[in-house]
Amino acid sequence: MDIHGSCSTQFSAVREAFADSLRSGRELGASVAVFLDGELVVDLWGGHADQARTRPWQRDTLTNVWSTTKTMTALCALVLTDRGELDLTAPVARYWPEFGSAGKERVEVGHLLSHTAGLPDWDQPMTLDDLCDWEKATTLLARQTPRWEPGTSSGYHRFTHGFLIGEVIRRICRQSIGAFFADQIADPLGADFHIGLPAEHDHRVSDVIPAPGPAPAPNPQPAIPVGAYVTAQDTWTTQWRRAEIPAAAGYGNARSVAAVQSVLTSAGRAPSARLLSESACRAVFDEQSHGVDLVLGIPLRFGMGYALTAERAPVDTANRRTCYWGGRGGSLIVNDLDAHMTFAYVMNQMSHQGLADPRSRALLQATYKALTT
């Protein structure tokens, strides 16, 4: 299986791990990227962009990265915080008055970012049409009562996360989150990542492929179940691609994911722009919760917009200033501020292992091995 792209000699172990994953058949098509001190040192891709294996995965292939999109949404909020337009400790109702009802008067912006707001789901079933209706999705959330005391525990806000933060951003900027991300983050960085995919990019998309077999039952059962709403096949539709669903419908590849997120590991600097101050980067590590997540049923430690490394957590590194998240099916982004390193992995063949996916783990381990040799 041919691998394309570039990889510095120091990171040859990443190339080897990537080649092994493609040869073994665990991958269909994928990309991996690493930034070190703001420089792209690994930029690899390979495999196929379709299940029939008729289209090669190209340098500019895009795919839906599911919840890795949440880190882009979080970065939008951090940029506004750094500009003094958003206070993470302020009540959400300061920016979104209708939200301050039904027991949510004291819900803070930081609670939205850390999945501790008590709004992990809608109180009524939601269809794909509903998720693509911004006004309906946000209006319903503004009327709801939290399912637990906000700020006391995390309960993964699988789809609601992006609507909640996105509406706060819209109220401040009078821009949709997709437009804000494009204008204020992606364009200045020259990053090929999209929240709401323009039609001119459709020909570059590799549709995600459903994980084989039924998903295993969670063990232990989560305290609060949340609706899934969307299948892999739903993401193949034009409706999904065009909609701005900022918790799950971002399109990019490893290079573009890492290019955006490396703003955190290069002290807010990028080759063409400075987006964040060092203090804004540090704000990510303001711990908001630490314990078993009420929705996912696994130990997680959340900061502002990202999970933080911790013992028994899905990503646990020796460097304490490490933040991460991943997407349904296996995509992963890791920012290690101590090592000044950003790692990203994006693929089209989904698995059921999520943050524990052995493909991303092997690549991340190879990356850390390279950093210590």
Score class of each variant (00 low, 15 high):
R15H: 11
E16C: 00
E16Q: 13
F18Y: 12
R23F: 02
A30R: 05
S31V: 02
S31K: 06
V32C: 05
V32I: 08
F35K: 05
V41M: 09
D43M: 03
L44S: 07
D50F: 03
A52C: 05
P56M: 08
W57Y: 11
T61C: 08
S67G: 14
T68V: 15
T71H: 05
T81W: 01
L86K: 05
P91I: 03
P91T: 08
V92C: 07
Y95E: 13
F99K: 07
E108K: 15
G110F: 03
D121V: 12
P125K: 04
P125A: 08
L128E: 04
D133G: 04
T139G: 00
L140M: 09
R143N: 03
R147C: 04
P150C: 07
F159S: 00
G162M: 01
G162I: 05
L164Q: 05
E167C: 00
I177R: 04
A186L: 07
G190Q: 14
D192S: 15
L197R: 02
R204E: 04
V205N: 08
D207E: 12
I209K: 07
P214D: 14
P216Y: 12
A217N: 05
P220V: 13
P220S: 12
I224W: 01
I224Y: 11
I224K: 06
T231V: 06
D234M: 10
T238K: 12
W240P: 04
A243I: 07
A249Q: 07
N253E: 14
N253Q: 13
R255G: 07
L264Y: 15
S272A: 13
A280K: 07
E287H: 09
E287P: 08
H290I: 00
P299C: 09
P299A: 09
F302C: 10
F302Y: 15
G303V: 06
G305R: 14
L308D: 04
E311K: 11
T317C: 14
W325C: 08
W325G: 07
L337W: 05
T342M: 09
Q349T: 01
A356L: 14
D357E: 12
R359E: 10
R359M: 14
R359I: 10
L364E: 10
L371R: 13
